[in-house]
């Protein structure tokens, strides 16, 4: 049988976590800088908020999931250390601070051409392994969905995202204007996404 205190503690933790999740960046930074009992929860909330966004940035610039995870850990570690020491001078500009840290970390990772030292902080490790931009796509469904696009749209997608050619080069190869390539590309990618999201229809 639970005692009165047993029921109170989880409820208080839930409220604290929930409040932190909804808190502004400035409030989280203040809680982290103040230290004490609220610091850890504020740090968790900050990591939960920024990890998926940093990971997306990492995948865009590093094109590698593992290195993207390393970037999340490196950037969050830098942001948390700066926050603990009260070095984020304009808390309302935390986004810019994170962006600057991301840029520097990507440059460093590229210079090292290898993996950053993995952080051991459990908060960072958990945050880095969070929501992934990738989702597993069935190869047959992808093939079928690509086949449902027109020849030109399929070629634009293959050249842009599989062969990773710049739009200028795609335009030259397919005798299109660069503007045309961009329009075809975003329309075709939207159509492909819609098809992948409707596997039952695609399999029919």
């Amino acid at each position: 049988m639970l005692s009165a205190s047993d029921t109170v503690v989880p409820s208080r933790w839930y409220r604290l976590g929930s409040m932190m999740t909804e808190a502004t960046d400035s409030a989280l930074l203040a809680a982290i800088a103040a230290g004490g009992a609220g610091r850890r929860e504020a740090e968790r909330a900050l990591c939960r908020r920024y990890a998926p966004r940093i990971r997306l940035y990492g995948l865009r610039h590093l094109r590698d999931e593992d290195r993207g995870r390393d970037l999340v850990q490196t950037v969050l570690l830098g942001v948390l250390e700066a926050s603990r020491e009260g070095r984020v001078r304009e808390p309302e500009q935390l986004v810019r601070f994170v962006l600057g840290t991301c840029r520097n970390a990507v440059l460093r990772l590229r210079e090292l051409e290898g993996r950053a030292q993995p952080a051991t902080d459990e908060v960072l490790v958990a945050a880095a392994g969070g929501e992934a931009p990738r989702d597993p796509v069935n190869a047959a469904v992808l093939l079928r969905c690509l086949g449902s696009l027109g020849d030109r749209a399929r070629r634009v997608l293959e050249l842009s995202f599989h062969e990773e050619l710049e739009s200028e080069e795609v335009a030259t190869r397919l005798a299109l204007s660069r503007g045309n390539v961009r329009v075809i590309r975003h329309r075709a990618l939207a159509a492909l996404r819609a098809c992948l999201d409707a596997p039952a229809r695609g399999a029919a």
Partner: peptide, 12 residues
């Protein structure tokens, strides 16, 4: 943006 990324990554 994650939907864009996931689709492009599937192609890559």
């Amino acid at each position: 943006a994650r939907r864009v990324a996931a689709t492009a990554e599937a192609l890559r």
